[in-house]
């Protein structure tokens, strides 16, 4: 097999992606937070965010996508897993069973009530984990084409 260069430069995609990218990232965050008590959540949010980076990869090139992410995708998986694992621990300190959901609400002056919880922490962990996993796969394949 002859390795082919990654060559999908298209003006339309290039221009479109710079508009779409922030929207996709915002939408992924929206999905992540909405997953609290409505359809959505960390997994689907992570997929959308990963799709945003993949779009960058298609519109520009491998290097641009890597630079956009800054960290190694596997490190994202690591951080995500740490968050998800840590989310299982707080109930132990209040004498409840492992992984029981804990809720805290904060009253902020301007924004009103802010609900924090261990499921949210877990979801953020899933979010990062999914981004990392998907991008590891995508980058591995792109790297193979790239070199």
């Amino acid at each position: 097999m002859k390795p082919r260069r990654f060559n999908m430069r298209s003006l339309i995609l290039n221009t479109g992606s710079s508009l779409l990218l922030p929207l996709l990232v915002l939408f992924s965050l929206f999905l992540l937070l909405r997953g609290h008590d409505e359809p959505g959540g960390g997994f689907i949010g992570g997929l959308v965010a990963a799709a945003a980076v993949a779009l960058k990869l298609f519109a520009e090139d491998y290097k641009a996508a890597r630079d956009m992410l800054r960290v190694h995708p596997l490190q994202l998986v690591g951080i995500g897993l740490v968050l998800a694992a840590v989310a299982s621990l707080p109930p132990l300190f209040v004498g409840e069973s492992f992984f029981t959901a804990q809720w805290w609400s904060l009253d902020l002056p301007i924004f009103g009530e802010l609900k924090l919880s261990t499921p949210l922490l877990f979801d953020i962990g899933v979010f990062l984990g999914v981004i990392g996993t998907v991008l590891t796969v995508v980058f591995t394949l792109a790297e193979a084409e790239h070199s």
Partner: peptide
């Protein structure tokens, strides 16, 4: 109640270790 968590430790310890070693991938 207190020792119940012992059952989860053999799972959660390696998970945490794996996650931590991923975050220090280059070290």
């Amino acid at each position: 109640m207190d020792l119940e968590v012992l059952v989860a430790l053999p799972i959660i310890i390696p998970l945490l270790l794996g996650a931590l070693s991923l975050t220090v991938l280059s070290n």
